[in-house]
């Protein structure tokens, strides 16, 4: 690429509020450096819009290092854009070419209503966690940490699942807007650790019930969620959730 930078056409979803009708608007952005992150490119667009007297594009972001889960965006139809295991804030413009048109949309799911432009409300995820994504232990009660040995492979498995950043890409990528990958990551983390065993049955039942109540769809078994996940969460966790759920229904006192 030359030192001139790229000339891009941005096709951005604009929507004033949750009840307003949205539309795509086109913006021409020139001389974009390949070293910019995607969000820095949007910063540049917004600075331009302010100069022109148009309200800047609203988008969620915070840590800009791929861990807080606040950034989102469907970029050319892909959650967090074209790179594997990469959040939008870690996506860099070197991934695009001079002359590209880039379509930028919010997550689209019934359980994630749009607040403004590219910003959605993901508090449904918090409610799924509050239905059971925890170990019931009060501060001050814990025995010495090494009283409870955990096999290294179990800890690694728990860590793989616990790496979920709660961004919602799995939901956005799924044609049913299912939250199975998100929910199963938390269920899995707790199911493979001894600390999570006492509450495993009620945990999975309550979290799945809450997931349904929030309006997330059913799992499609197509693994789009895994492909979109910036934290590399595996669909194996969904299989584990299904086993946990079945066991809870059939064998536990908590079953329906």
């Amino acid at each position: 690429m030359s030192g001139q930078g790229m000339n891009l056409t941005l096709r951005v979803w604009r929507q004033a509020g949750s009840e307003d009708k949205g539309e795509f608007r086109f913006y021409q952005l020139n001389n974009v450096s390949e070293h910019m992150s995607f969000l820095e490119m949007l910063d540049v667009l917004n600075e331009r819009l302010i100069k022109l007297g148009e309200e800047p594009v609203a988008f969620d972001h915070d840590c800009r290092e791929g861990i807080c889960g606040m950034c989102s965006l469907m970029i050319n139809g892909q959650a967090h854009g074209p790179d594997n295991e990469t959040t939008t804030c870690q996506l860099h413009m070197r991934r695009f070419r001079d002359g590209d048109t880039i379509t930028i949309e919010p997550w689209r799911a019934k359980a994630f209503p749009i607040i403004r432009d590219l910003v959605v409300d993901r508090t449904s995820f918090d409610r799924v966690i509050s239905a059971g994504g925890y170990v019931s232990v009060n501060a001050g009660n814990a025995p010495d940490a090494n009283c409870l040995p955990v096999p290294k492979q179990d800890q690694e498995k728990a860590m793989d699942a616990a790496a979920c950043i709660g961004c919602g890409a799995c939901v956005a990528a799924c044609k049913n807007a299912s939250a199975m990958l998100f929910t199963s990551a938390k269920v899995s983390q707790m199911a493979v650790l001894p600390q999570g065993k006492p509450e495993r049955a009620r945990r999975v039942l309550n979290m799945v019930a809450q997931m349904d109540e929030e309006g997330f769809g059913s799992c499609t078994n197509t693994s789009e969620c895994e492909a979109a996940c910036p934290a590399g969460i595996s669909v194996d966790n969904i299989a584990r959730l299904n086993r946990e759920y079945l066991k809870a229904v059939v064998f536990s006192d908590e079953g329906v």
Partner: peptide
């Protein structure tokens, strides 16, 4: 106490092969 509390919550700290 902090480490004890976090482990009890299910925080997956790195471990040795013996489980500690």
């Amino acid at each position: 106490n902090i480490i004890d509390q976090c482990v009890a919550q299910g925080v997956p700290f790195a471990r040795e092969y013996g489980g500690t």
